[in-house]
Design a protein around this nucleic acid. Structure first.
Length: 352
DNA sequence: AAGATTTGACCCAC
DNA sequence: GTGGGTCAAATCTT
């Protein structure tokens, strides 16, 4: 059973990787064609659109890996042992005896000693951190700073963050952020542990996605913001076509999503919108809503349900990902991992 | 007042 | 003994 799920998750990642390849090839061909035909090419617009599409697919690839690894770590803890021994060239890790120490999502907890409460929090990190370099400090998660340390041979101090939900939900995710000396505009971020909290994201996210219908040029974003013209349920799911040519016309008479803080938002939300989703009228909640999701290309009977926070602005891809996740609810949140984790500078080098 | 940040001290691995 | 990760009280911010 686990094996099938694992294959399924990885297959999805593979499919998305193929899509990325196709998108880039398609973009290259189209560009060559435009140059050959002597057409004016709005390169900036094209690049933005391609980036959005690649963003979405790369998110799926990343999610596939994260989900698969989580499944492996969770279901095959013995695999971790072999894995560590194989890759640790400094000799075998002195791992505590599992019979007396508990395993918590890849980290080994020290035994609890009431005399020294601090010691119970010390643990040996056996899991390799995920290391990225980025100029964007904000990865969308809610972090709380708990320390700062001057590290040898570095110009800037290292900052330590833990998930905001460590205390209320026991989330083990932490990250270390350090400014890179050679390039102060960039940060090296090490992520430790996985988010196990129910609501890891601090703000709604917006992605520019064109992956629902390749012929249709529009991206589709769903807003769950409360609008005055729908007082009954307080929910007004909206489909925003995003094939905008001008930059900012958020002053549209119609409503815009609540997460206007997103830099992509104004560019995306412009033209008239039309309802796509049908909310479930029963039990409206202040915080979460269930919603029927209908794929534009599917028949009307083909509906799935999912739940999102009332002020979420999310992409259809996230909805689909959430709805079809074969694993469990925890995994669903990994679909919302920050797209910024991927460095696209290489991908788009060709087009700059 | 509650939540976030700062910062010196503590603790563990090396 | 030292460096780095974490704690927790004090302080700041909202």
């Amino acid at each position: 059973m686990i094996r099938e799920q694992l294959v399924q998750v990885l297959e999805r990642g593979k499919e998305s990787a193929i899509q990325i390849r196709r998108l880039i090839d398609h973009h290259r061909r189209r560009r060559r064609q435009d140059v050959r035909d002597d057409h004016d090419v709005d390169d900036g617009c094209l690049k933005l659109k391609l980036k959005g599409q690649v963003d979405a697919h790369s998110l799926e690839v990343l999610t596939s890996f994260v989900t698969a690894l989580s499944m492996i770590h969770y279901n095959f803890p013995s695999f971790d042992d072999h894995h560590d021994h194989d890759h640790d060239h400094q000799g075998p890790i002195k791992r505590p005896n599992p019979t007396i120490k508990s395993r918590v999502f890849g980290d080994w907890e020290a035994p609890h000693t009431p005399k020294d409460p601090r010691r119970s929090c010390k643990r040996r990190k056996t899991e390799q951190p995920v290391e990225i370099e980025t100029s964007n400090m904000d990865d969308g998660y809610a972090w709380r700073k708990y320390g700062q340390k001057v590290i040898q041979n570095t110009k800037h101090p290292r900052n330590y963050y833990r998930c905001t939900h460590k205390t209320d939900q026991g989330c083990q995710a932490t990250k270390q952020v350090q400014q890179i000396s050679e390039n102060p505009l960039k940060y090296k971020i090490n992520y430790h542990g996985h988010h196990r909290c129910k609501n890891p994201l601090k703000t709604p996210r917006v992605y520019n996605l064109d992956l629902i219908d390749d012929q249709d040029d529009s991206s589709k974003l769903l807003s769950f913001e409360k609008l005055p013209n729908n007082p009954k349920h307080g929910l007004n799911p909206i489909l925003f076509p995003s094939s905008s040519s001008s930059s900012s016309s958020s002053s549209s008479s119609k409503s815009t999503p609540s997460s206007s803080s997103s830099p992509m938002c104004n560019a995306l939300v412009e033209k008239e919108y039309k309802p796509l989703m049908h909310e479930i009228p029963s039990e409206p909640s202040d915080h979460h809503h269930e919603a029927y999701i209908q794929c534009p290309s599917s028949s009307s009977s083909d509906l799935t349900t999912t739940t999102f926070a009332s002020d979420d602005v999310i992409s259809l891809a996230e909805v689909y990902s959430s709805a079809v996740s074969p694993y469990n609810v925890e995994v669903d949140y990994s679909y919302m991992m920050a797209a910024e984790y991927i460095d696209f500078s290489q991908v788009f080098q060709d087009y700059s």
